[in-house]
Structures are given as C-alpha cells and as structure tokens.
Amino acid sequence: MSIFDHPDYDKHESISFINDASTGLKAIIAVHNTNLGPSVGGCRMFPYANSHAALADVLRLSSGMSYKAAMAGLPQGGGKAVIIGDPKTDKSHALMQAMGKFVNSCDGKYIIAEDSGISVADVNQMAKKTKFAGGNTAQYSIDGLPADGNPAPATSLGVFHSIQVAVEHVFNSDLTGKKVAIQGVGHVGLRLAKLLHEAGCELMVSDIFDDNLLIAEKQFGATIVSNSDIHKLDVDIFSPCALGGAINENTITSLGASIIAGAANNQLATNEMDRLLLEKGICYVPDYLANAGGIIDIHYQSIKNGSNVGLCERVAGISNTVRAVLEESSSTGIPTQTVANMKAEKILYSA
C-alpha cells in the first residue's frame, strides 16, 4: 500500500524513515504541516508490535500537533517522531545521538522534544548532534519548582483548566465534590491528580505501573481501579492520560462519565467516536485542545521577557479555546472535535 493511501495520511508534507544498524535505531519522523512555521513535536519511544503500528501512530500524532499548534495560536507547525523500541531496555546515548543526526537530516523542518518514553535528558543527548531540539532548556517555571524543560507541569495545568471549563459547561458548577477517573498517572496524570485533589475532587486512578498509583492513593486519597474498568465508572469526568485510543468501539458502549477530558493524544480510535459521544450526551474536550500546555510551554521558554506568571496565564488561555468549541458544538449540534478540526483547518490552510 502506498503511503498516500494510508488511512492516517492527512496531507503530510514528508515522512522519513531510518534503520541505523550500528546503534539499533529504527525510527520515523512525520512532518505534517509547516504553513505556520517549523514543525514541533515530541519523540515517542515505544515497543510497537510492528512498523505498521509505528507508522499509524506517527501519522496521527503529527497531524494532531498541527491542529494543536494552530488552535493554541503558536507560530509553528506539527510534526512527530517515533522510535521503535522499549525505553526501559533499548536506550543508549549512542541511539539518542543517532536520533539527533536523523532530526538534523530534516534541515530544520522538524524540531524534536520529549514525549512518552523519552526524557529531557534523552533530548539533551540528541541535541549533541542537532540544534533542532526543543524543551530541553527552560527559564520559566509553571509550578514554582526549578525550570528544567519538562512540559508535563504545563500539560497537566492545561488539562485541569479544560476540565474546569467542561464542568462549568455541563454542570454549571465548580470542581468541588466532582468524581474524576484518571486513566494513567504518569508524569502528567499524577500532576493532574494533585491539582484535582486540591480543587476538592474525588479521584479514581488506574495505571499499568504501581508506583504512582500508590502515591495517588496515599497523597490524594485516590481509589485504585483496574485499567479494564476505569472507563466504566459512574463518575463526572473520565480523563484518559495514557496512550491513545481509549474511546473505541469496545469502550464507548460502557462509558460512565458525563465529560471526557484528558492528556492522552488521539483519544478517539476513529472519527466516528466524535459523533457517537455527542449522541450519548457525553461532553468531549478534544484532546489537542486540552493537552496543548506542553507545546505552549516549549514555545514560551524562547520568549526573552517572559515570566512564571506569564507562562501560567498563557496556559490558562486554553480555557477560552475550549469554551468556544463547547459552546459552538452546543449551539450547532456539531460534535466537538469536528468543530475544533474545522477551526484548526481554517487557520492552517489559510496561512
């Protein structure tokens, strides 16, 4: 099958592959759109079942980054990279530096950053071989801790603001007493749990690893549930914060929440899920609106006269974008992601 016939191909400008025998690097870089500026997006390292799964992921993730940047009002395009491998066992400095060389071959059309399975330290290794790396240095902090380039605090804050807006839209209330089921309490999900706990929410959490589950249980009073049941709970908000595809043909019939808003990319397994959620009366906050805090952070770190307060205010602006999409969906009967996509495409293709 031709790349151009791939179901997840979406007017991508370029797709590059590498198989570096000396380091074991097998990776793909997808540049979706550079109409607004160089494409920016994280690098994900994951033990994909095969190259077809890796290609599908990088195509979907890269197009989502274009839409995310457009709706966040950033002067950049969307791209993404994936490394096929287990981040717990397959990493090496040589492999990360080989990835940096691969990024360099894109001649500045793609700027790499951290994502699932890749840390700021890994990006620093890549940066030894390319100047086209972002999110590995920082001067402003969103949570009062030393700025280290990790976008997770900004991502979690943006999701928190999105949940606030959705709760106001659906329930005309604040977060006090709301029940939230968080699927995945990694770097972003655990920080989100803290923010929601401080806002007075009751938490249910799941993850494939125990460490952060125990932290959420001990520090935030969260109830630990299984990954297979988290989406079924009778809660106010379901927050997918792990990998994509949480809303699919197997889970959509048993969703127990009134609102879906989380940090995971590509939460809808297919475009049809958007319409089905609307028909079920579930308010869905499009993932690339809710989780835009990370790329906002990366961009803001390059501003010379910024501040910690300014960064927080910039991320808080996600609220206005989410509110506009939810209100337009309610007034027109068009599903929320369709509304967001139309707005993003108008920005992207009229640039």
Rank of each mutant, 00 (worst) to 15 (best):
P146K: 09
I163T: 02
S173Y: 06
A152P: 03
S105G: 01
V167P: 14
G117E: 11
V120P: 14
N150E: 00
Y110N: 09
E114S: 15
N136P: 02
P146G: 11
G100N: 07
T130E: 12
D148G: 12
I118D: 06
D115C: 10
D115N: 08
P153W: 08
F171Y: 15
D107C: 12
F132S: 13
I163H: 00
D115H: 07
T130K: 08
S156L: 03
C106P: 00
K129V: 02
S173F: 02
T130C: 10
M126R: 12
A127R: 12
D143R: 03
A121G: 07
V159M: 02
F171D: 13
S173C: 07
C106K: 15
G117D: 06
V120T: 15
Y140G: 12
I112G: 09
A98F: 00
S162V: 04
L95N: 05
M96G: 11
N136A: 08
M99R: 13
T137S: 14
D107F: 11
D115R: 04
I163E: 00
A98V: 07
G134N: 13
A138V: 01
A152C: 01
A113L: 12
T137Y: 12
D107V: 00
I111M: 13
M96E: 05
A166E: 01
G144P: 05
I111Q: 12
V165K: 08
G135R: 07
T155C: 05
S116M: 15
I111F: 14
G117L: 06
N172K: 13
A98D: 09
K131L: 08
Y140M: 06
A121F: 02
Q139I: 02
S162W: 05
D107W: 02
A166N: 01
I112P: 09
K128H: 09
A152T: 00
S105A: 10
D115S: 10
V165R: 01
H169M: 13
S173T: 11
E168C: 11
L95C: 01
S156C: 08
F132Y: 15
A147E: 01
G158K: 04
V123T: 09
A138Q: 07
K129T: 09
Q97L: 09
Q139F: 03
C106Q: 15
I118K: 01
A152E: 00
V167T: 15
V159S: 06
P153N: 10
Q97C: 11
N124H: 14
A113R: 08
A98N: 08
P146M: 04
P151I: 04
A147F: 04
K128T: 09
T130G: 11
